[in-house]
Design a binder for these strands. Structure first.
Lengths: 410, 410
DNA sequence: GATATTTTGTTGTGCTACGCAACATAGATT
DNA sequence: AATCTATGTTGCGTAGCACAACAAAATATC
């Protein structure tokens, strides 16, 4: 197999690669004039103009009609540039999350704006992969008119399972699947020939939360999704770091304590199950909810605070351990349990401070407040990213016949 | 600052980028014919020929004289290709390690072969940065004839300190340096204008150990260097992962036990200091060495075995924790303490098995047997890698005047 | 208010580097 | 010896970018 990093720039690829770079720049900065784009891409103004002409002809870019509300006193000297922007409805990408209890689908445009979403209840464990894929695909396509279908440029799937980068699932414990090639199944089920990517739900969530305009975060973000289970993802310089088996960032399996008794990992200490299990023992309510717990913590009810305190300590240890290995500069907490963090910020910080052995920089912690479609959104973003990358061009190039690329290295 | 990922392929860069790709392919595969190269790079044979012609004119590539000793019965049909190889002495790269007790320098050629090395005793803590840099530079250059100097294409420095990616050291505890810009100092001290990179010694070691011909390992390698201190590095798909502050992979600071008593991190449990401290308590010798300890372990002396057992357990916990976060598929142990591992392989494996909660894949562990110049070699490799990357071409391009690249994004 | 200045967008020219096709070459195959 | 197969080379066509010149649209300056 050829090393993709080695592929050279052929004459044909230059233009395509530059067009993609222009789209990427427009996505990142929102609006640019031809001259600004030329500077960003280190191209000549004339080349920039040609590239924009191509993209405009393709219907991907247009000149912005209304001027941006720039400050009246501060106008730059010289002929003002004509602002360019991505055409919102030119093409779109679909993302679906096959969860345990629901299926969500998201449609995004070239500007990563959410165009439409669908959510449907679902009983994952009782449904076969094939049926689940079938429902996911039809739900995703149901609100897309047939005439629009051909403008779809990618389809992403996320699901709670570890899979390799090709979308092969060894085992999906929550859904009872085993050795299925999810990406291939979706590809076959789709009435379109578009790129399909599958990804673990926490990873997809992490992508969705960082893949935003002007947020091409250069750095390392650790993402932690706390629900019943605890998932995680690592984003390095805007790209998901999957690890060798797609398990990178799954810090829920960190060992927190080697105290006697049953060995407990981070997931078992900061997950929803553990909190609610403890809370049920003390709550006076018949069927206490996590909301009740949060309220009790806010009211400083000692029993609830004690549980929260345990949670804060375990979280602190887990984050410190993880940051000592990956040296993140940003931590984002997601999932329903993340709502507990704002109530415990000071305690978590105190524990972190106590564990930190010196004044090493520790990243800031923020809470992500995405809706329930975060993971599906991330799945769609994966294909947006793929479209705006050199990879996508290879896909297009495969239509041309290739001499046998098989070549055993000596 | 412009996003490097956005830079477009200008017409001029194509050739340079393709020449670099050709060099990279030759480095990776050792010997290729023009036609093979064309396939690897997905170029036309004629283009491949032109590129090789340029490189040959530059003296970087030549046709291999003697044929490789191929099996006589297995010759391929068709005109045999003329094998091409990198010219060994065309250009070279220098790497120095400024250690606590010695300075080592390495000269490598375009094929990452070690051409020469120098090692000199050194008393780091008592010497100023400027003097250390001075000595390092002169030692590195002492065996280079003046006529050859202009063929140097890069200079790398490694030292036991955390530094940012520009080579700025906040604090080097072992050497007593503070807030020095090592890369700049070296640049100023050099009588050459070549790219200079500085890197933490463990990181450089990790680069050197993985950056080898045909070893462009696609995957995640965790590197652990165990001496008095314990350093580490992570290599992702052949590239060093520095993290936000250059601390990624420093797993020596992992917390291993929360048992009562002084909190102990991995470094304090598997470092040379701890082993020798424990061993001195039991050894009958006056001044026991690590070699004595190894011999005792091999002889199954109970007191030594007990120490080794503790070491194996702590190592296992550390590796499992790290792999749960970064999902490595390869672990390499280095440093003098790594010699203990072959004696304890089974015990470490047993501990890992006991901790691993399920049948997640766990990477294989190997021991690196580099000489003492490993870190200097890695520093040189960093510049080799830089030379064979798109980055290097930007360096060359900066000679051309640029329009003001400053441009605040709106 | 007229002119100068600055920046933008466009156009035409030139050049570079690649792809393609044709051909000579050097070995294996028959 | 004739054929086959793959390589290396050569000439031509072309795509796409840089460069320079110019018109246009704004601000700056007198």
């Amino acid at each position: 197999m050829n090393d993709p990093a080695l592929t050279a720039s052929s004459h044909r690829r230059i233009r395509q690669s530059n067009e993609v770079a222009a789209l990427k720049a427009l996505h990142q900065f929102g609006r640019l004039s031809r001259a600004e784009l030329a500077r960003k891409l280190r191209l000549n103004r004339s080349s920039s103009g040609h590239i924009i002409a191509s993209l405009t002809a393709d219907g991907l870019v247009r000149e912005a009609i209304e001027d941006p509300p720039e400050l009246p006193g501060y106008a730059r000297v010289g002929r003002p540039g004509i602002m360019l922007e991505l055409v919102p409805n030119a093409i779109f990408f679909l993302g679906v999350e096959i969860g345990v209890e629901h299926i969500s689908t998201v449609e995004i445009d070239l500007g990563t704006n959410i165009v439409s979403t669908n959510v449907e209840p679902f009983d994952g464990p009782s449904i076969s992969v094939e049926a689940a894929v079938e429902r996911a695909v039809s739900l995703a396509l149901q609100s897309i008119p047939a005439s629009k279908l051909e403008r779809c440029e990618g389809f992403g799937v996320s699901t709670p399972a570890q899979m390799d980068k090709h979308g092969l699932i060894r085992l999906a414990p929550l859904l009872g699947w085993r050795n299925v090639h999810l990406a291939d199944l979706v590809r076959d089920a789709l009435p379109l020939r578009v790129p399909v990517l599958a990804e673990n739900d926490a990873n997809a969530f992490a992508i969705g939360a960082t893949y935003r305009r002007s947020e091409t975060h250069s750095g390392v973000t650790l993402f932690l999704v706390m629900e019943s289970g605890v998932g995680g993802g690592i984003i390095i310089d805007g790209n998901l770091f999957r690890g060798a088996n797609g398990l990178a960032g799954e810090i829920g399996h960190l060992i927190i304590s080697d105290a006697p008794g049953p060995r407990r990992n981070l997931e078992q200490m900061i997950g929803l199950e553990n909190i609610m299990g403890e809370y049920r023992k003390t709550s006076a309510l018949d069927h206490p909810t996590f909301g009740n717990f949060l309220a009790d913590v806010q009211d400083r009810l000692p029993s609830a605070v004690a549980i929260a305190e345990q949670w804060a300590k375990a979280l602190a240890i887990g984050l410190v351990q993880a940051c000592r290995i990956i040296d993140a500069d940003r931590i984002v907490l997601g999932g329903s349990v993340a709502a507990l963090y704002p109530l415990m910020t000071a305690r978590v910080a105190a524990h972190i401070h106590a564990i930190q052995e010196s004044s090493f920089p520790f990243p800031s912690i923020t809470v992500n407040d995405e809706g329930t479609v975060g993971s599906a959104f991330g799945a769609a973003c994966m294909l947006h990213q793929r479209y705006l990358s050199l990879e996508s061009q290879r896909f297009a190039d495969d239509t041309a016949e290739l001499e046998e690329p098989e070549e055993d290295e000596g």
